[in-house]
Design a protein around this nucleic acid. Structure first.
Lengths: 332, 332
DNA sequence: GTGAAAGCGCTAACAC
DNA sequence: GTGTTAGCGCTTTCAC
């Protein structure tokens, strides 16, 4: 049997309202009674039932974080950014990983909706986000990392994916490459598409032709990256430079290249997307395009908070890109 | 205004009880009414208020996961293991990162306790866990990764830390090393202490003396690892082998060693704890002692579930260690 | 097969 | 300064 506020009140010889007021500091209670109540609370290790409180107050001080990707460094850092900021603001975090499963994502949404959380930060599995429009008018939602403009009334916090695609391609072109391949994990998602757009733009500015066949898909894992390079290089013999969309795939690609005795960067130069701790001590040290996942996470939570306070409020934040130049791109 | 079960009932011309029954399948309702109710639910995109449901049912189908460490690969994988298993079992996960802050951990506990979650999986910040005994008798708790036998009535799921400490030290001894340093992040926590015990045992079996001064603390970060090797090697010139307690510190240590032009493994051999994806492509490829974080996470959730079903139930699971031999230890 | 009603534990408006 | 009371939205027992 769990102890309730009523029990505390009874033992202290006061009403539940009084107990509630001392716990929440909502009204002044005589010192004597206050102390007595506090003592009893201490004695029983009592803490108020948040379920009841939530129901009564119509909020839960909890945010939902729905991520879709396999936990690479980027997503992981983003999650901890959101968690950190939520904690600072007195919120809890409900974490859901949809594993790139669209249907699960939609189900989860129905579950979270309606007061189990005060709002949701979503990194969607796909670009089919119209289903969100049934919620966004009355329920705070912010899209993170991946974004789709068809979603109305939702805020968004992303990195500047166009620029990292553009800068990476341009850098390779400056190294003299004309045939630059891209290895990505999921298509039709703003992160991937924006990067490809940037890449195309850099190609165009330099009078290079875009080949759809220079793009290769793979699972966002070490194995996926290995498989993808192998099949891409087998199909497109002219490719001399690679842009790889996440850290695990980059690692897989490098392993495979080494296995095939293809020298980096002499035979195939390479730029990874998303910085990870070991980049500088890999041979060769990896050049990475980086977006700030921790900051994206923190900003996403702030954005959600604004929407919880005012559902009409909306903003689209795009955080700037940067580049860590090391040697895998051909620099020295 | 959010729509409630009452509203649905009214529009369908039935009682709330009937609506509840069709939603939960708790009783047979005439096909006609059933369909009508379902249509209305669909029409309004209604989903029942979980707060109210939780209050009424006295459970939340939510587990709390409280982790303490900086998010290295190991913790990250463990979190996703827990999340994955929770999802499979129809539970949600409340994620809290205490950032190794003991006081915050205790506060958080009071918050989670009492029905905001059905139970808690805790990776504690320190070894001072007596405060848990106020909860464990009536509230499901499982300790994960780090464990303290002073906590009564809590289950635990850990890796075999003694063995990885023992095996790593033994391996180094077999390579001819007599002066083996250890770089750890937090002391007085079972993971660290058990590994040190294993290390001591290997030393003893081989007639080697244990030096407290061969142990060096550092932050569980890349920088922390770098700083720690530098100060350890400066102090203890005879050290020719290093055991490093987590992935980020291992990376930092290697960077620093390279910076100091100390050759690995010729001048200083090294074994890391906790495998990470890039280990094989680092120069030299890193030998790692590994415990299965994903499996630990999954098992921890299963263990919690058993405790939720029966608070008396208790188990201590220790998952086996393995070793990925590569070159940083001196093997080839 | 269906409905009425009680009640989960709390908060807050109102009365005293 | 303190207590009474209503009610948040749901589930479930009991009656019909």
């Amino acid at each position: 049997m769990k102890i309730t506020m009523k029990d505390i009140a009874k033992e202290a010889g006061v009403s539940a309202a009084t107990v509630s007021h001392v716990i929440n500091g909502t009204k002044n209670i005589t010192e004597d009674k206050r102390n007595k109540i506090l003592d009893i609370i201490e004695k029983y290790n009592y803490s108020p039932n948040s379920t009841a409180k939530n129901l009564r107050k119509q909020n839960t001080k909890t945010a939902g974080l729905v991520v879709s990707s396999f936990p690479d460094t980027f997503v992981n850092e983003m999650v901890y950014g959101v968690e950190e900021r939520a904690r600072e603001k007195g919120y809890n975090l409900l974490l859901i990983n949809t594993n790139e499963d669209e249907e699960y994502e939609q189900n989860t949404f129905n579950l979270l909706y309606s007061k189990m959380v005060d709002g949701i930060i979503l990194s969607p599995a796909s670009n089919d986000l119209e289903y969100l429009n049934a919620f966004t008018k009355s329920f705070p939602i912010v899209l993170v990392n991946r974004f789709n403009s068809k979603v109305e009334n939702a805020s968004s916090v992303t990195g500047d994916n166009f620029t990292i695609g553009y800068d990476a391609a341009k850098h390779m072109i400056e190294h003299g490459h004309k045939d630059i391949g891209i290895i990505y994990s999921v298509r039709h998602v703003s992160t991937t598409e924006d990067r490809i757009e940037g890449y195309k733009e850099a190609l165009k500015e330099n009078g290079l032709k875009f080949h759809e066949s220079y793009l290769e898909a793979g699972h966002a894992t070490v194995k996926g990256g290995a498989k993808a390079v192998e099949s891409l290089l087998k199909r497109e013999k002219k490719i001399s430079a690679l842009l790889i969309q996440n850290d695990l795939m980059t690692i897989g690609a490098i392993s495979k290249l080494k296995e095939l005795s293809i020298r980096i960067p002499e035979e195939v130069a390479l730029i990874g997307f998303g910085d990870f701790a070991s980049s500088p001590i890999i041979t060769p040290p990896i050049t990475n395009m980086v977006l700030p996942p921790h900051e994206i996470g923190r900003k996403a939570f702030d954005s959600l908070l604004k929407k919880i306070e005012d559902i009409e409020y909306m903003e689209h934040i795009e955080l700037p890109a940067s580049m860590f130049v090391r040697q895998s791109c051909g620099c020295d």
